[in-house]
Design a protein around this nucleic acid. Structure first.
Lengths: 339, 339
DNA sequence: AACGTTATCGGAAACGTTGCCGAAAATTCT
DNA sequence: AGAATTTTCGGCAACGTTTCCGATAACGTT
């Protein structure tokens, strides 16, 4: 059904010149008569000629495509990062090929092969949570595929990385609680085997130290991202005789669970107790009360990843991978007291 | 930097056969000795050979890529549709090339050119809200590009279409408001150049008529999907002396903006005012209060669109475009009163 | 008048595949 | 045995471009 699109051949025939000449006219080659160039361009316009990028890619051995693979894109996190990627990629005349691995290692492998087959020039990758074997990734890198990692970082793998500063984000959150008058600040902590859990705990601890508040073991609850547990630990905190006046949660789902528990106890946020989350997803703004949360610069993550990748593409072998750590931002809403 | 990947040439040399033979071995050609085939496949495996799809596409004049262009994908709507598209596309061995037009006609045109240039075999398209000139689309279709439209439908354009029954969904939503006792129901309307906007408005109007409620122009606000505008119009509604007791929003982002505005005015949902959205995004369940909303079968939309497109690709010129209309469902949550 | 320069162009190879056509080798049939 | 057939393979053109290299013509220089 697909009608053939016009080629430089068609243009050459109609103008009675060679395809070389047409080719020269269409790019900005120097050795061509301005008049013939004008004629070619006009005819190209008239025929609505679109260069066949397939042929160009084959000939030049360059696709101008960078791959992006993420575990999913139905939540706002990855789409927003991709937006940032596309911004700089488009500006640098790269196209973006997006794939999603659905949190499946099998699909990740398969997609990676497809990307190699499509000859993407580089890859921006967030691995699945079940990816514990890196053979396919290492193999691709060994074949010369530059990869930039983000969100899910594996220290052992070479390549540039873009991450957010969990420590600093946690510090700011707790600092804000302190500055708004809270003195007994509990932490609903994440798994300590993940750097994300450790870093956020450390930010919490250091903020307390900096402001010379005592650190109490009984205020640090290992919720570990586990649904249900948070509720129990929050209840335990509320039952303490000297109940905390603020909660810093390791992420937003944890914070929301705590919020529900607090409200069920008939307490008000932030009058009785302040609450801060750590955001993966920016819709924490829409709950009641809108939640104060540490938000990540999603756009910026994408921009940095794309910039790093494109720099590597340009600089070639003497590019040295970089790790960029971006600061998080504290967005103050209504779940904490006013300063 | 990119190390050259192995080609059938490399395999041919090492095995002392011709490239034709290697090619035959790699696809499932009949006229080849099983032993040589085995040898080729083993060596290909060992070298981790990935066929160059660029070359194949050029040679076969077939890219096996279908394009998808959407106005945005930071809200859950389009990503979920794309998921459905990918499901059937992958099953049929098509790859999906995703682009987003950022609600800009300029970008839409540019992307369409890029897609033509990349020789996508067909396109699944949701136009931007500012697309009122269809020259670029018609021109692409005239060149033989099959296009399936969804979400934003233009009746005048030929091609298959997948839509949800906006009229029926809107009718149900307003009917529910009426049945739960609301009498002054406002509509935060969408752009009237889009059928989606018109149909939802018509559903609203007909529901009012059916239940013999008066239609008031002052209750119909042209929010047009524009961020910021909704807030102003909602405020205007709340300022009316005889303020409405219910809002039916043309989509969820609009509804959420209205919700924020209402809450900022210190009013309660649904006690003071009921609110119904029309779902682009299924996380309307997680806001406070959880929002009553017309939900669309997003996955199914994607599946239908991809199936229609691929059928058209297979059947060629004697394919007759179809329009599929899928029913929406009203999910009653807490932003409307109980019946 | 013979030469070198310059501007402009055409020819042809190449990118990695596929697929047609025909050749050689192996097999079967008279 | 030779002929006919089948199996297996190699040669080659083609897909649409880019790019190198050399050719032609027009020009200016001695």
């Amino acid at each position: 059904m697909r009608n053939k699109q016009p080629t430089i051949w068609d243009i050459a025939i109609k103008l009675n010149v060679s395809i070389s000449t047409v080719s020269r006219a269409l790019r900005n080659a120097p050795d061509i008569n301005p008049e013939t160039k004008k004629a070619v361009l006009e005819l190209a316009q008239e025929l609505d000629y679109q260069p066949n990028t397939i042929a160009t890619s084959l000939r030049k051995n360059k696709t101008n495509i960078i791959g992006v693979m993420v575990p999913e894109f139905v939540h706002a996190y990855f789409p927003n990062v991709i937006l940032g990627i596309q911004e700089v990629a488009n500006a640098e005349d790269y196209k973006v090929m997006i794939m999603q691995s659905a949190e499946s290692l099998e699909i990740e492998k398969h997609n990676l092969q497809a990307m190699m087959s499509s000859r993407v020039e580089g890859l921006i990758l967030a691995i699945t949570r079940e990816t514990n074997d890196y053979g396919h990734i290492i193999s691709a890198q060994r074949k010369g595929l530059p990869i930039v990692f983000f969100n899910r970082i594996v220290d052992e793998l070479p390549g540039s990385k873009v991450m957010v500063n969990d420590y600093q984000g946690a510090f700011m959150a707790v600092e804000h609680l302190i500055q708004t008058g809270c003195r007994r600040i509990a932490h609903l902590a994440g798994p300590q085997n993940l750097t994300i859990g450790r870093n956020r705990l450390n930010g919490y601890l250091d903020a307390l130290k900096t402001y010379q508040l005592p650190i109490e073991e009984s205020l640090i609850m290992p919720c570990n991202f586990e649904e249900g547990k948070t509720r129990l630990y929050t209840q335990a905190l509320l039952n303490q005789t000297n109940r905390p006046d603020a909660l810093f949660a390791v992420n937003d789902p944890t914070a929301i669970e705590a919020l529900i528990c607090i409200q069920e106890n008939g307490m008000n946020i932030p009058e009785h107790i302040s609450l801060v989350g750590f955001s993966n997803a920016p819709h924490s703004a829409f709950i009641t009360p809108p939640m104060t949360s540490v938000v990540q610069p999603l756009h910026e993550i994408g921009r940095h990843a794309a910039e790093l990748l494109i720099r590597q593409l340009n600089e070639g072998t003497h590019f040295i991978p970089e790790t960029h750590t971006l600061d998080a931002k504290l967005v103050i809403r209504k779940s904490t007291r006013q300063a």
